[in-house]
């Protein structure tokens, strides 16, 4: 078969659709894992559990919300606040001298939302945990 310019375009579009479809189906079947989460895991699904996220239930001021993540055995963790204009808050890579895979930090939250910590384990699997935080006064200007 001789490939004309038109044929090439059609084949290309078909291939693109074929790769896009399973990805969408995949995202839907995994409890709606967000794009930011997918970007961190490289499309792999993260299991619930194995990670602990500690944060106040109600944060009076969204400008500084203390959050700690404890992820034993993780090589890196990402903290994702889905309701923020830029959901990825920070990603932490633990080095050989990290005594425990935990980190505490203060973050901004634009509104009440679910905050998720996704951890990449040493064996390449992913684990995650989420918590709801209610915010009385939002951060991020606005």
């Amino acid at each position: 078969m001789e490939l004309t310019r038109r044929d090439t375009l059609v084949v290309g579009a078909g291939a693109l659709a074929a790769t896009a479809l399973p990805f969408q189906a995949f995202a839907a079947s995994h409890g709606g894992a967000s794009e930011t989460e997918m970007a961190f895991t490289g499309g792999a699904a993260a299991k619930m559990g194995g990670v602990t996220i500690t944060a106040p239930e109600i944060a009076e001021n969204g400008n500084t919300v203390p959050v700690s993540i404890d992820a034993p055995g993780a090589v890196s963790v990402a903290l994702i606040a889905e309701g923020n204009p830029e959901p990825l808050t920070a990603s932490v890579a633990f080095g050989p001298l990290a005594a425990a895979q935990n980190i505490s930090m203060r973050i901004r939250l634009a509104k009440s939302q679910k905050v998720t910590a996704v951890a990449k384990m040493a064996d390449g699997s992913f684990a995650k945990a989420s918590t709801e935080i209610k915010v009385t006064i939002g951060g991020c200007g606005g």
Binding site: E86, A90, I107
Partner: peptide, 10 residues
Amino acid sequence: VDIAMETSIS
């Protein structure tokens, strides 16, 4: 540790 920080850090 090596932390990549984004805008939603306080």
